[in-house]
Write a protein that binds this DNA or RNA. Structure first.
Lengths: 212, 212, 212, 212
DNA sequence: AATGAATGAGTATTCATTCAT
DNA sequence: GATGAATGAATACTCATTCAT
């Protein structure tokens, strides 16, 4: 209880390092981020970083676990317990993901993986196992539940998941790459796009048409 | 008539270099591709590459011009001359882009830009001006034409363009990144996804509902 | 007190690197000296050099500050405090410069600047501000003092400074260039030349002729 | 007599190449001058240069022969034939050298040699044999003639040659190096310096003092 | 004779990782 | 535990020279 500040500091170190790493990896990419910068942003020296994480790759894996694995587990739990309309659940899950992950810096992790998967096969494997597969299982399952319950038309689940995920991921990627440069490209109003997507796709998905 | 082999080579070199550069840039990214590798893949020495392109960045710009700018111009022409249903035109443009660009290696260029825009601001600017803006102008214009002609519901054009582009771009990115690693992630059946997308989104877009 | 060897090295490194740099820059010139050679001569690796100096140019500037700026400041102080004959002071300043700078490796810096000024404008600017101007101000001031005190004839100060500096600088350059090659060119006996110069020029400078 | 322009061109080539080489070598130094630039300035292609001179070093030797050896031979002849006062002859030779060589681009050759002798020992040897030695023999001989004739005091000839040459050479070097950068260093008024030098040194050299 | 396409050795600088203190 | 000095592998770009045309 009366842990000295030094003690608190020592316990907080991993979190501080992960936060610094997330920020810089998203900003510059994995390969282009220097470990020394991560350490500096976390307020420690280069050597200290290696005390907590044995390499840059392991540091990145820890960032993924910290920021994505946990969120996914929550969503899976939520879906398992939900009782009512699958439509509502699907909307909720997607909105929540956007709020908690997509909008924030953690969204940038997907950019990094897209960018550097082929140069770092170990990271790619880890990310697919830890993130991509679970999300596909979750959303695919929801589509199947909706079809089974008669809410949705009998669409192919796997492909529909792609169509659901696509625009959201694309916006995330854009905002963390070209959108982050101060250029005169198209400005993306993410909530508006999500609204349009929900409108368009639900109309297409639902067994019973909505009105205008 | 009496073009010596040396002469023929000189004229073919730029194409050979651009093809090699496209392959490697897409595979490894811009920063991680070594110029010497590009030269080797094109069957020439390091120095020769610099005879044709003054720097790695200029080489990359040339790759973009060669592979994307030309295709975009074709699509713009096609759209300007098309007379019939906007729905057909939109489907055609998107299918053609997928066939000619998305599916092939040129699709990987968008991955590179997502990945490295923030580290190479000059390239980002070039890509936005040369590729992103023209595509948005083209598709946005089609949506507006469809609304004006009464084919489409009065959706917001800019955001709808995002929803149209999103899944396609996401698939492209996926196939050039995680999909290219031999992992057990979800296998994407791109034509099937496109079919689902067209089905879902057109249902949402059209003023008059389709049947099942 | 308990300075570990590592610590002692850290403090000594800049000096060791500057000494190695001076030696090699004088021997081969600025452009032709490889940073790795400098590091090797100082007994460290390539990377260590860059821990202390951010670039080859900054290393060179540090060599100038270390070897010339300090000497010039000393001479300026001496001149400011000197009370007696300007003739004596002038002789002393020139002899001292020859002993402390001209004769030693630091003399070679002027060779480098002559050689590479036009290819490295930043270095040229630095050298003019830091070395050439101060020396001219010092010697020009001495000539003026001598004229004002009636010791010297009313010669034009600026041009006289050139005549004073010329032979010394020429000898320095010669010894660090052609003289350093084992050739059968004229061997320069620097002290003898200086003696002749002092004899000839003082005779020309003094208001009252000397005897034979 | 009716040589076609093409013929005239072919015969003029070596001269044009030497002129171009002199200009660029003086401006940038030997190592830093690219052979392609020399060829371009002479209006021919890279390959053509090698048709006339087998290497960059041989090109440089030819520049020396063309611009210095010839002038020296003229001065030697003049000195051999001169009958009157050695003082006049010495003044004349030095002024003529300044006018014909020092002031013009050929003066820059000495800068190059100072700069790069140690990196190109072959060139150094050639320059000493072809230029330095002859000039020293010429001027040393004049001093001895002046002493023998009673015009000059019995000064040591070799060292006196250094004092004579020094300021002139220094000015040449300065004007081709730091002086050629647009900096705020001291501006050298070469004729004024020469006048001062002649005044000072002759006063010191002559057996019978001049008046004020 | 003239060209210019091709070559490949050579070099400043960066950065993940180690380890003595 | 914490530091930061030291390392050395890795890479874009240049330029003298050659030689097929």
């Amino acid at each position: 209880m009366s842990t000295a500040p030094r003690q608190r500091r020592k316990e907080a170190r991993p979190q501080e390092l992960l936060a610094a790493a997330l920020t810089l990896f998203v900003e510059k990419g994995f390969a282009a981020t220097r470990t020394e910068e991560v350490a500096a942003l976390a307020g420690v020296s280069k050597g200290t970083l290696y005390l907590y994480y044995p390499s840059k790759e392991e540091l990145f894996k820890a960032v993924i676990r910290e920021n994505l694995s946990a969120r996914i587990a929550e969503a899976v739990d939520l879906a398992a317990q939900h009782q009512g309309s699958v439509t509502d659940l699907l909307c909720h899950v997607m909105q929540a993901w956007w709020q908690q992950v997509g909008m924030g810096p953690a969204g940038g992790i997907s950019k990094i993986m897209m960018a550097e998967a082929r140069n770092f096969p170990d990271l790619a494997r880890f990310y697919v196992d830890e993130v991509v597969q679970p999300i596909h299982r979750l959303l695919g399952g929801l589509i199947e539940r909706g079809i089974a319950s008669g809410e949705f038309r009998p669409v192919p689940p796997t492909e529909t998941v792609q169509v659901l995920i696509g625009p959201m991921l694309h916006m995330i990627l854009y905002q963390h790459s070209l959108g982050a440069c101060r250029l005169h490209g198209p400005t993306i109003d993410a909530p508006a796009v999500l609204a349009v997507q929900v409108d368009l796709i639900l109309r297409g998905l639902l067994a019973k048409p909505l009105g205008h």
